[in-house]
């Protein structure tokens, strides 16, 4: 154990992907399954190596799980920031949009963050409400991608 401890990078927040891969390699080499890193101030990082010894180690980090997107035919265009939503003229059902088109602005005082469409297609639903305080990640419009 002590050999692994001496080689594991100093724990300061979530390790970089390079460090994660390095720690995973060290675990496999040492024949260990799990490791807990802590900074003594409450931050902790757990890793478990799940792959069999012959395969490439697959490190899972408790703090970095990614939610799975549910596939659907239309695409939700979400608010990239919070603020008061100001919809643009494009934000109407039936409008043809192209990548980069701006369907709304998230406004906080003078700050404006545009809501841009990522694909070419047709707006099939306008979910966001003009003039309403809107949170990060809220759906603004839905776009049916062009075939």
């Amino acid at each position: 154990m002590s050999t692994v401890e001496n080689q594991v990078p100093v724990f300061e927040g979530i390790p970089s992907s390079e460090d994660l891969a390095r720690i995973a390699d060290l675990l496999v080499q040492a024949g260990l399954e799990t490791i807990e890193l802590s900074d003594g101030k409450g931050a902790r990082c757990f890793m478990r190596v799940t792959a069999p010894a012959s395969a490439v180690p697959d490190a899972q980090v408790a703090t970095a799980a990614v939610p799975v997107e549910v596939p659907s035919s239309d695409i939700a265009v979400k608010a990239p920031y919070f603020g008061v939503l100001a919809l643009t003229d494009l934000a109407q059902i039936g409008t043809l949009v192209r990548p980069g088109d701006v369907v709304g602005q998230m406004q906080i005082g003078a700050l404006q963050v545009p809501v841009t469409v990522p694909v070419e297609g047709t707006i099939v639903d306008v979910v966001g409400q003009d003039g309403v305080l809107t949170g990060y990640g809220a759906v603004v419009v839905r776009v049916e991608p062009a075939a």
Partner: peptide, 8 residues
């Protein structure tokens, strides 16, 4: 009273 999602 007010709830606001501010990030991921």
């Amino acid at each position: 009273n007010v709830a606001l999602c501010i990030g991921p």
